[in-house]
Amino acid sequence: MNSRITQYCIIRNGKIFLNGEEFFSNDIAESPLVFFKSALKHLNISYPKFYKMDSLSKLAFLASEVILIQDKARGSFPNDRVALVLSNSVSCLDTDVEYQKSISDRNNYYPSPALFVYTLPNIMIGEICIRNKYQGENIFFCSEAFNADLIYSYVNMLLQTNKADKCITGWIDFLGNSYEAVLFLIEREGNSNTIEFNIENLNKLYKGI
């Protein structure tokens, strides 16, 4: 089997890259959230649920929208054959801290359900699934740094054992004002003009920009 990396998206420092080319830039945005909102407008997406998401899910949602632009145009996505394998170093700590603040004052104690639902990192996978009606395999891993070996092993297993035909995988990290998204679309039957799916290429693309 010769799976391919058919699309990849990198979001760092106020810039979005799609397949190595700059797709959108707003490096003067005063905060990640302002940057994310401007990117959503650039994508011309009307999706009010975006505003309800925590920052981690917003970042994952944007990266997935960018990576799926061309596939959506082709319109050939079997919903139960797309897997999602995401990872990061801080889980959903950004939201956990906010939630902790909301319940730490005994005189103003209110465990907000709207906030609580995002105190799990795999909710960002759920948001992508809801948006695209995906029903395939999914998993979230926590590791100290981007781990191409882990991603390659797991995604390769899913594709080789016929659990999925395509997989959205990568690294979505958000804490405070620090964020990074590196997302890959892996296809079992990818075009030969695309990049071979292997550990070396995952590492090269992750470090590339």
């Binding site: 959230l33 302002v34 009010p48 505003y51 309800k52």
Partner: peptide, 30 residues
């Protein structure tokens, strides 16, 4: 504030649009 619609401004909310499903797309938790 209550729903933590971070980045949204009041003028982006249609006064007469349905709050649930369509419009703001709210759910039972909201």
């Amino acid at each position: 504030t209550a729903l933590k619609l971070e980045g949204m401004t009041p003028d982006e909310i249609d006064t007469d649009a349905p709050l649930f499903n369509e419009g703001l797309g709210l759910d039972s938790i909201d």
